[in-house]
């Protein structure tokens, strides 16, 4: 069922009215949601950006869905990166100390190794994810998109209620 939803989301995203750039931007922002622990304050900012900026919301949902399992898999790596940054890099210690003693910033849990490590990796991946996704969507639409659009499966998917909800927030 989850896989079906994912495929449905993927197909709808690829065929949405948004430009490849909008889909790719949504996917990049969604990847941050997926790679970092969800209940973190910075993800409230990311959700706000996804909703406010004119990016593809299905793209963001797809990015979140795709990168969540990757986030789980890479947690040991995030932990190690966060540990190296928080405890290993002495030059960064004054920065962490200053941030830790600022209002609100500690509420982001930046001083947790997994949160910091995953946030740094997801921000670093944002740019390649954006360009990669934009290239992929452009190629897809130029080659096989039309054939998929004419298929019975696609028509079944777009008839669902979720599609109606999506249309409310489709990129302009």
């Amino acid at each position: 069922m989850l896989l079906l939803k994912l495929i449905q989301s993927l197909v709808k995203t690829l065929h949405s009215e948004g430009t490849p750039g909008q889909v790719a931007a949504g996917l990049a922002l969604g990847s941050i949601l997926g790679l970092t622990p969800l209940l973190s304050l910075h993800n409230a900012v990311v959700v706000g950006l996804i909703v406010l900026l004119n990016v593809s919301i299905p793209g963001a949902m797809l990015g979140w869905a795709l990168f969540t399992p990757i986030g789980f898999l890479l947690d040991p790596l995030f932990d190690a990166i966060g540990r190296a940054l928080l405890l290993g890099a002495l030059a960064l210690r004054p920065l962490w100390t200053a941030l830790y003693n600022l209002p609100v910033v500690p509420l982001t849990s930046f001083n947790n190794t997994v949160v910091l490590g995953s946030l740094v990796v997801s921000l670093a991946l944002c740019v390649p994810v954006f360009y990669g996704a934009r290239l992929g969507v452009t190629r897809y639409r130029a080659t096989v998109a039309e054939r998929v659009r004419r298929s019975a499966l696609y028509r079944a998917m777009t008839a669902s209620k979720l599609y109606g909800l999506y249309r409310l927030f489709r990129p302009e």
């Binding site: 928080l86 100390t97 001083n111 947790n112 997994v114």
Partner: peptide
């Protein structure tokens, strides 16, 4: 800086590091 176990959650808890500073 003092490291303590991170919060329990579905994802890995990790380690939370505290950075005390004078006059705070």
């Amino acid at each position: 800086p003092r490291a303590t176990p991170g919060p329990r959650r579905v994802r890995r808890a990790g380690t939370t590091v505290h950075f005390p500073r004078s006059n705070e």
